[in-house]
Design a protein around this nucleic acid. Structure first.
Lengths: 358, 358
DNA sequence: GTGAAAGCGCTAACAC
DNA sequence: GTGTTAGCGCTTTCAC
């Protein structure tokens, strides 16, 4: 059943049917109703491919993320999809993993689908800050369609970024720990993303502002333990489930800390809740009371933060707001509005629970 | 840059270019290389819309799930996307929420995108078993494209199902609890999905086989607390983040149990880990030791099961296998193979941790 | 307000 | 092995 059939059945031309389908005002109420009735009766659905060919768009947004089974990204995609769907956009989801090459490849593939916009979810796409060319593909993509980054920042034309102020978040937590009298604050991280760098900077600034020394051994990097990570992004390799990966991570952090007998600290700021829960497990194994003997703060305010004992103080990165803000601007850009705000930074919020007690 | 341009630049016809693009063997090596070179040079990408129009397919799979921010579904989608991507299929993701009407609407919408296959992720789509017509839309969809269900079962032509044997899983856990001497095993659930019904049946069979009575008050339904659930599917309403919802759920279960002073039990089998962690929180608040005074088992073997204290025994539903199995059959069906196995049941596995100690 | 007709860029049947 | 050509189903000028 195509537009010709409907036209024939309605006794009008395909142009008129097309007008009705697209809600053009240049149709008399009468014919409009007639056509509508026929369409209803015939259960006609316009062919999206043909329409796509004519309009060179299928109202589709490409969403790329390293791993949809990661809680943070899943939440982001959930918000994005919901909002975009409201406005009639479909989402093609693609998961690239963490390797640089894979990111580039998936980006290209998504672009070849003639998406209207590309959304890059996760700080990973903003690169590690090491290699200059690592974000070149983002700029290249931006030459074809507007590119939106969720929790990442890349400078460039047609690139729009929404990100949490992780530097400030880390600063706030570290400062609170300092105020609580902690002297040796361990900074725990397991990835080198843009976001992780921001956090480290916040941590360092807070120490500096308090007149504390910045000690190298207190910035402790937990190497992704599955050794499948081409560039140490700290993500699952997907050969396994993400929850399985996360389970292992928690236990791994505990073991690493137990094994590392020379490291001394009275508090921990972990770059994500998984690491923080690992620290909690370590504390329990060591017989350390939390928060009295060891304060622990995590990041992302995930479900994990509440499951553990004691419950975890954690920084909320406000993904929902980031996504919502991004969608607002996507709509503007796609409607051809000019001067849409390119970058948007959102303040993170510390959710205080008993693991730090400050 | 279209196929005509490439043809002109290569000094061949568009048919030849098309052949090269599609890897037809009916092209001489020489012209093939020539065309390939031109395409490369011109950075030519075939127009997917035009191709879709011609082939009436864009190699796209529609994936529908109630909520991608739910850990279980995110994991499923992750596996599906990864496998399908390998075979050149793209995934359109759509999240329907839990309402019956929304499920039907999203299904229709996805079908109107001319997807090659529809995948329904989650037991919710198999209905509550109450209203006869509630799965009618699944059968209707199956008249247009093959429909695959992940962890759900609906009888019908062109409907293919992969599901964990949750009944057996529940049976095994309950039986283990009985063997350990537990007398009053609380069955905790918060949704009425196909999967939840299976679990309850397993629970009941195990009790029956042990000669235990099946007590109504020991089958405890936790009503979704946000009151935004049109049909009590126990899912987040998405107005909030899923992790926020889950955090609340854990605390809510704890409070509910504390408030319910007449309910007596020496062990709990919870339909999901969120509920189980809530029970753990309750036990702690009550000063009950786990597993000595209270055994707790969860379901889904999620990250939560390891974050809590003590760690949670949980049944692994084997999503990855379900998805992998589904993809295998999707490929077969799309290649026109006949007699593809319609239903596939996978045995669940108990992952034993210290919360039950059996 | 409506219709005729020219694309949109590709695939595939058919001819050579 | 290669080219010609007729669709695929829609949108969109341009007449009337």
């Amino acid at each position: 059943m195509n537009i010709y059939d409907i036209a024939k059945l309605s006794g009008v031309s395909i142009a008129t049917v097309s007008r009705v389908v697209n809600g053009s005002p240049r149709v008399s109420e009468k014919t409009k109703q007639k056509v509508l009735a026929v369409m209803e009766e015939a259960e006609y659905t316009p062919n999206v491919f043909a329409r796509g060919l004519g309009l060179n768009s299928m109202k589709t947004i490409g969403i790329l993320c390293p791993d949809i089974s990661d809680q943070y990204m899943a939440e982001a995609v959930s918000h994005l999809e919901k909002r975009l769907h409201e406005y009639g956009y479909d989402c093609i989801l693609s998961c690239s993993g963490s390797a640089q090459e894979a990111r580039e490849h998936h980006t290209k593939l998504l672009l070849s689908k003639r998406i209207d916009t590309l959304i890059l979810v996760g700080s990973l796409y903003a690169g590690s800050g090491k290699n200059p060319g690592e974000t070149e593909y983002v700029r290249a993509a931006a030459q074809q369609v507007p590119v939106f980054m969720i929790n990442g920042y890349v400078e460039g034309e047609n690139i729009y970024c929404s990100y949490g102020d992780d530097q400030q978040g880390a600063y706030d937590v570290t400062q609170a720990l300092i105020r609580r009298g902690k002297k040796r604050i361990l900074f725990l991280y397991d990835s080198q993303t843009y976001s992780a760098r921001q956090k480290m900077q916040g941590y360092e600034s807070a120490l500096a502002d308090a007149g504390y020394p910045i000690l190298g051994d207190l910035k402790h990097y937990i190497r992704p333990f599955d050794m499948q990570q081409p560039d140490g992004a700290g993500l699952s390799d997907f050969s396994e489930s993400s929850s399985g990966y996360m389970q292992n991570k928690v236990l791994y952090v505990k073991e690493m800390l137990l094994a590392h007998r020379t490291l001394e600290f009275d508090s921990v700021f972990a770059c994500n809740d998984g690491l923080a829960v690992g620290v909690l497990k370590y504390a329990r194994a060591k017989g350390l009371s939390v928060p009295e003997e060891l304060s622990v703060a995590g990041y992302n305010n995930s479900t994990m933060a509440v499951c553990c004992e004691p419950e975890l103080t954690s920084v909320d990165n406000q993904v929902k707001r980031l996504c919502s803000d991004a969608v607002d601007r996507i709509l503007k850009v796609l409607q051809g509005e000019e001067d849409v705000e390119q970058n948007h930074k959102v303040r993170c919020e510390i959710v205080r629970r008993c693991s730090t007690d400050f």
